[in-house]
Amino acid sequence: MRFINSLAGRLSKGRRSPLAAPALLLSALLMSAAAVAVFTPANAVNKTSDADAIAKGRALFLVGCSSCHGKNAEGITSPDGGQYGPSLVGVGAAAVDFQVGTGRMPLANPGVQAPRKKVVYTEEEISQLAAFVASLGPGPAIPTSADWDASGATNEQVVRGGEIFRTNCTACHNFAGSGGALPGGKYAPKLTGVPEKYIYEALVTGPQQMPVFSDAVLTPQDKRDVIAYLKTTESDPGYGGTSMGALGPVSEGVFAWVGGIGVLVMFAVWIAAHTARTKKGSAS
């Protein structure tokens, strides 16, 4: 406190406003109070609320998830050796937040791939489920906004993110993040309109067929750069008109035939069509 006092005094020397020193002091006081509020009670509360959340999460899990993933999330093996649901031990809170937060889980019906759909659980329930699964074994935690927030990225970082994106992601997700096909009816989903947090979580956890991009190789900064590139490109105006789904030359070709040739043939029909004639009788 004495340090802040003296700092305020020194800073205010060169200033005109006599209110500067008290104002700075006040804000410093508020900040330290906030820090105390954030840190101390959090630790104290965490223990009880953690246990509470895990218990609630377990209850939710038993109702909504255990039929496929097993009562202890150990996974259920089907008679033919496959899996109804994989083991969730060690997948971490991030995986739960991604799968449930994007509506992929709980699965509506079995299929080759869990599609993105309406989210079933509330945010609080998702965090309780995540807490429960995280308690089963160590795994990636839910990233904070400090991890995924790329809004302050420099242009250089955006450019770098583009490079990483084109090397690692476009093969499946397409150059504009429009998604692409995988074998056997599976697919890489669209990336446009996906919140930053879920992109980050997908990179860390490798959901479904997607490979993992661990922090040790693709650092959190690399991941933020990719997110920055995606979000920047998404907000680009349509420089050359509407994008027609940004699917590449196939949609362009379809349009050239259906739209281009179609319209021009209609014009040709009009040009060569016989014009209206008057009745024979009225000709003079």
């Binding site: 690692n168 490798g206 993992v212 991009f213 661990s214 040790a216 190789v217 650092t219």
Partner: peptide
């Protein structure tokens, strides 16, 4: 970035 084996998780692609 050079890569150590322990940096890679199961299911990882580089």
């Amino acid at each position: 970035t050079p890569i150590k084996p322990e940096d890679l998780e199961i299911g990882q692609l580089v």
